Simulated scan of single mutants.
Amino acid sequence: MSTPARARIVFLVRVPAEDTDRFLAAYERIRYQVAGGVPGHILDQVCQSPADPEQWLITSEWESLEHFVAWERSPGHRDLAGPMRACMTEAKSIKFEIREETSNTTTRLAG
Rank of each mutant, 00 (worst) to 15 (best):
W56R: 02
G111P: 10
V34Q: 09
P83V: 01
A51L: 15
F68Y: 05
A5H: 14
P39G: 14
V69Q: 12
P39N: 12
L24E: 05
R108V: 01
C87Q: 11
E66S: 05
P50L: 13
G40D: 06
F11P: 00
Q55Y: 01
P75E: 13
L57S: 09
F11M: 08
M88Y: 11
S93M: 06
N104Y: 09
G82R: 10
E90S: 12
M88R: 12
Y32K: 03
P39M: 03
A91K: 01
T89V: 09
K95I: 09
H41W: 15
A110N: 09
L43H: 09
G76T: 11
F96E: 02
V15D: 01
S60Q: 13
Q55K: 07
G37E: 09
P83T: 09
E28S: 15
V34R: 08
R99P: 00
V13R: 07
V69N: 11
V34M: 11
G37D: 05
I58R: 00
F23R: 00
P16D: 02
G37C: 02
I9S: 02
A17C: 11
R22C: 13
A17P: 03
R22K: 10
E66Q: 12
L43D: 11
R31K: 08
A86W: 13
E28A: 11
I58L: 01
E97V: 03
R14M: 01
F23P: 00
L43A: 04
W62Y: 08
E63C: 10
K92T: 02
